[in-house]
């Protein structure tokens, strides 16, 4: 049997050291936070302060280098939790006596940074749009529209969010809706679309978006190369009838 020389042992030890070091540094990741600013101006006598901006700036998302972000299983679990959270929020938003303020509070409490815009006037209808700046992982483009009716009552006309594309995204969204809403028989069902009546006023539908569905959205930015298969869950006021009543073709 050939003997292993000390030279080979040293080489082996060095290689092991390299492998160990690379594993160690890859786990640490890179902090996105910029800390510290140097004092450069002579005109003032300000003592430099270390200033740490909030890590969750607008439209921010988890650092891609973190190990949690790289682990697909952990990412999927986070996305599913987000799907459950948002489905539950939609269900609560359309419960009797639910208010827009409660929805805003819930979004704020989950760190999603809600904000609203307002157009129209009391004479012809005021429309308030509610969106968020910092969505939960795996979801995005939360969008709600509230109207103020003749009696001054504020009510939701539309509320939706999107869930990330994936081989099981549509099924997962349907499951989340089933878990959080009291759903009967679907009134319309296809491979990429399903709809239920919630009551006399509202429907819940889930749509797996095709490239055509991603076109010309006035609120949301899409990349057709990446976003086909995005799943949207929406609750909105009815316009058409049920499928069997539908428009003549």
């Amino acid at each position: 049997m050939r003997k292993i020389s000390s030279k080979h042992l040293l080489l082996l030890a060095f290689l092991l050291l390299l492998i160990g070091a690379s594993l160690l540094f890859s786990k640490k990741g890179v902090s996105p936070v910029v800390s510290g600013k140097k004092s450069t101006t002579a005109a003032t006598q300000v003592q430099a302060l270390t200033m740490v901006e909030s890590a969750r700036t607008s439209f921010d998302s988890p650092t891609p280098n973190s190990s949690a972000a790289q682990d697909p299983t952990a990412k999927e679990r986070r996305a599913q939790r987000s799907l459950e959270t948002m489905s539950r929020l939609l269900a609560k938003a359309f419960a009797p006596n639910a208010t827009m303020e409660q929805v805003i509070q819930e979004l704020a409490a989950t760190g999603q940074k809600p904000f609203t815009t307002r157009t129209g006037d009391p004479a012809a209808g005021r429309l308030t749009i509610l969106r968020t700046k910092s969505p939960l992982p795996g979801t995005r483009y939360f969008h709600a529209q509230y109207f103020t009716d003749e009696q001054g009552k504020v009510f939701p006309q539309h509320m939706s969010f999107e869930f990330k594309p994936g081989p099981r995204s549509m099924q997962e969204a349907v499951q989340a809706a089933t878990n959080n809403f009291r759903l009967g028989q679907a009134t319309e069902q296809k491979s990429d679309f399903i709809q239920w009546n919630l009551d006399d006023d509202y429907v819940l539908w889930i749509k797996k978006k095709s490239a055509i569905d991603l076109e010309d959205d006035p609120f949301n930015a899409y990349d057709p190369a990446k976003d086909v298969g995005t799943v949207q869950m929406s609750v909105e006021m009815k316009i058409h009838g049920d499928a069997h009543e539908g428009h003549e073709h």
Binding site: R126, L127, D149, E150, F155, M237
Partner: peptide, 8 residues
């Protein structure tokens, strides 16, 4: 009338 066109 006043208010939003849609209502319940």
């Amino acid at each position: 009338k006043k208010g939003s066109l849609s209502r319940k």
